[in-house]
Design a protein around this nucleic acid. Structure first.
Lengths: 160, 160
DNA sequence: ATAACTGCAAAACATTTGCATACAG
DNA sequence: CTGTATGCAAATGTTTTGCAGTTAT
């Protein structure tokens, strides 16, 4: 398992390094520390969570640098940024992951991922109709999971 | 044109009034003023724009009431709330409008609307697979419009 | 060398909240 | 009457910014 992880780590390092070089920006240890933390994380996380993880792993970075680096990583497609219902943005590592969309439980906020090839077709059709160069999309479905284990189940049944 | 507008106004008033009554909440003039302002607005707007419009129309409401009422209107489906890239939420009147999705130009932030029946099929399939009761979705496509008139066109061509 | 980056703390920003007052039911 | 809604201003929480000091190139 360290095999694959190491391979991926080198791969994303190279991508980020090339990206920075191409833009004449500096390859600082902080930036690579953020990149590593992102790829060590699984699933979705927010900027502050990442900041805390970094502090815990005896890496000294400021929040500003975390935000700044996450933006750079979005620009080179190594990270995807999402805005679900709240005001806080969520991020996730994006390299070599299948393009997926999100299903969100309005009661417990649990996230599920799905993928449907028809979305790609729709995207191409819309690009054609509107003469757009479409770069990415976000599809969120909101509802209620029917699991017994779903918290707030009763609360929402009163509410609606 | 006043015919239809008046008809719609009465219709949404009735829906909102019933909704409030059903929940034991009060029908205040401020709430109906916000509702009217929403339906006088065209396209997307944010909470503060609506607040300013209301002040300009010699209606005295506070920002807090605007936010509060917009939430109520979302709950009874008279208003749809969207989060595009920014931190600010956008709203739009929702009554009797076709369900549509959004295409956003990353250069000029212009919004276009589209609709594809396959999205409904995908929604039903996802609901079935995950055993979810899906209430709504949001599909946003991001890209660049190829119009000559698009502002920031040059800026973005430098950037990427 | 030198321009870009970092950390820090303050600022900015949209949204929410607490509380005293007003008012719909 | 009574509890709900309002306005105001202060609080909140995330993200951005300005600036002095650091550092990659």
């Amino acid at each position: 398992m360290p095999e694959l992880a190491t391979e991926q780590k080198e791969s994303v390092h190279r991508i980020f390094a090339d990206f920075l070089k191409a833009r004449g920006q500096r390859q600082t240890p902080e930036r690579f520390a953020v990149l590593d933390a992102v790829y060590a994380e699984q699933g979705h996380f927010d900027a502050d969570e990442l900041y805390v993880v970094l502090l815990g792993g005896n890496v000294k970075v400021s929040r500003a640098t975390v935000y700044n680096t996450l933006e750079l990583l979005c620009e080179c497609q190594l990270v995807a940024k999402h805005q679900f219902g709240n005001k806080q943005s969520k991020y996730e590592a994006a390299y070599s992951y299948w393009q997926h969309d999100h299903l969100i439980c309005m009661d417990c906020n649990e996230l599920f991922e799905f993928c449907d090839p028809r979305i790609q077709s729709i995207q191409e059709m819309v690009a054609d109709i509107f003469q757009f160069d479409i770069r990415h999309h976000s599809l969120h479905m909101y509802g209620r999971c029917r699991r017994e284990a779903c918290p707030n189940r009763e609360a929402s049944e009163n509410g609606a």
